[in-house]
């Protein structure tokens, strides 16, 4: 959590202003912006590190508030959902980049 939090503390301001300046533009401009390798790497990194950070953090939350079988089921389900979002996001960024 410490390693991913340091990475995210650096990436978050860059991501907020990059995404914020792309959102609101027409389709062609959005695709062109995400074709830029720097933007693609920023988005890819942010999705991967952000969702791994979420997976670890939310597991701690579930461990604090749920117990026994519900805890195990919820942790596994949460990891599946998180990794699915991560994979979809990464695939989309790669398709737009190349």
């Amino acid at each position: 959590m410490i390693v991913s939090s340091i990475a995210l503390a650096v990436l978050t301001p860059f991501f907020i202003f990059t995404f914020g300046s792309i959102l609101g533009h027409p389709y062609e401009e959005v695709v062109a912006a995400l074709h830029n390798p720097l933007v693609a790497v920023l988005f890819g990194l942010y999705i991967v590190v952000g969702l791994i950070h979420f997976r670890n953090g939310f597991q701690v939350v579930l461990e604090d508030y749920a117990h026994g079988t519900p805890r195990r089921v919820m942790i596994v389900a949460m990891i599946c959902v998180t990794y699915a979002i991560l994979a979809l996001g990464l695939l989309a960024v790669l398709r737009l980049a190349i």
Binding site: V30, L34, F43, L51, F54, G57, F58, T82, L91, R95
Partner: peptide
């Protein structure tokens, strides 16, 4: 904790937007 957990909604929205663009 609340902000960290709730950010999954924003992340899902962002990824949907990216997938749609792709």
């Amino acid at each position: 904790r609340i902000t960290g957990s709730a950010l999954l909604v924003g992340a899902a929205l962002l990824v949907w937007w990216l997938v749609a663009a792709s």
